[in-house]
């Protein structure tokens, strides 16, 4: 074996911790995909907005500076959610609602792919608008959490990533409960399962979609806020994550919230553990190989239903 037990456990721990942030991002994307069947290329850029929101709340304008370098970044990540939710609401109200919804429910239809162009356009606007507004200098949230850890035997667990793990699990859990136990959440899922039927059942599909879209980008923004305290970023950072998000969501099964969470986590674990056996450079190749393997063996994803395959 080319690696020791410590190496193995350390990589596993890193995989789970990094993966938890991916998992939360994937949940956000999964909600949007599940409800609207829209491939949103701008998801990474909404996450970038979440990063900047968290940054300005702590380091930039220092609204949350009084919370100190430990609690501040976590609270800021939470608050990034509602802020980006608002941005999402506006983009859906004025743009997305015109290319999605009841009229475009049949996502395999020839015209519905126009949505992809709209999200690509949104992505360009957010990235380049971000450059104009936020500037080109990479930035990050300064916190001692990023470079301190708890020790369990030989294994070191990064404090910032651990807190981020907890927040991810809590937020993802809350979203899951919300979608499965509340009226609004059930309406959303009904609209997702069968748009046409939902219309007949009296569900306002457009409203349900708006909620899904805003909630989806908001949750991904929370994940972004969490990542912002361990990684530095600039306005074009979204691209680095959007692929990971899609891989996670497809692995979990398009349309499954729980699946998206496990899919994202799995991506993180594969990414970090691949370095034990493969050259480090191929860690992302490993993601794609595992991704392809899983969808060939189980085309509907880990948690997807068979019917969604066709």
């Amino acid at each position: 074996m080319p690696f020791s037990l410590t190496d193995f456990l350390q990589a596993l721990a890193a995989g789970i911790l990094v993966g938890s942030a991916y998992a939360l991002m994937c949940v956000g994307l999964g909600i949007i995909f599940g409800a609207m069947r829209v491939i949103n290329f701008a998801q990474g850029d909404f996450m970038m907005l979440g990063m900047y929101a968290a940054f300005y709340l702590t380091t930039g304008f220092g609204v949350l500076a009084f919370l100190g370098p430990y609690a501040g970044p976590i609270v800021a990540a939470f608050l990034a959610g509602p802020i980006v939710y608002g941005v999402g609401w506006i983009t859906h109200r004025f743009i997305m609602s015109r290319v999605t919804g009841v009229g475009a429910a049949d996502s395999e239809g020839a015209g519905a792919y126009g949505q992809i162009l709209v999200t690509l356009g949104l992505s360009l606007i957010l990235q380049n608008g971000g450059l104009i507004v936020f500037g080109s200098t990479p930035t990050g949230i300064l916190t001692p959490l990023a470079h301190s850890s708890w020790e369990i035997g030989d294994i070191l667990l990064n404090k910032g990533r651990c807190l981020s793990f907890v927040v991810s699990v809590v937020v993802a859990g809350a979203v899951y409960l919300f979608l499965s136990h509340t009226r609004v959440g059930k309406g959303l899922r009904a609209a997702a399962d069968n748009t046409e039927a939902a219309v007949y059942m009296g569900i306002d599909v457009d409203r349900a979609h708006r909620l899904a879209w805003s909630l989806g980008v908001g949750i991904t923004a929370v994940a972004g806020g969490l990542v912002a305290s361990s990684q530095s970023f600039q306005p074009y950072v979204g691209f680095d994550f959007v692929i990971v998000m899609y891989a996670g969501v497809v692995l979990g099964g398009l349309g499954s919230i729980l699946g998206a969470f496990w899919g994202g986590l799995l991506i993180g674990i594969v990414q970090q553990m691949a370095t034990l056996v493969l050259p480090y450079q191929l860690q992302n190749t490993a993601i794609f190989v595992v991704f392809l393997l899983i969808i060939f063996l189980r085309p509907q994803g880990i948690f997807g239903r068979l019917s969604e395959r066709t």
Binding site: I95, I125, L131, I132
Partner: peptide, 12 residues
């Protein structure tokens, strides 16, 4: 950056 914004708006 403005070129990207204008291009994105045009697409939409």
């Amino acid at each position: 950056g403005i070129q990207g914004v204008v291009y994105g708006v045009a697409l939409i």
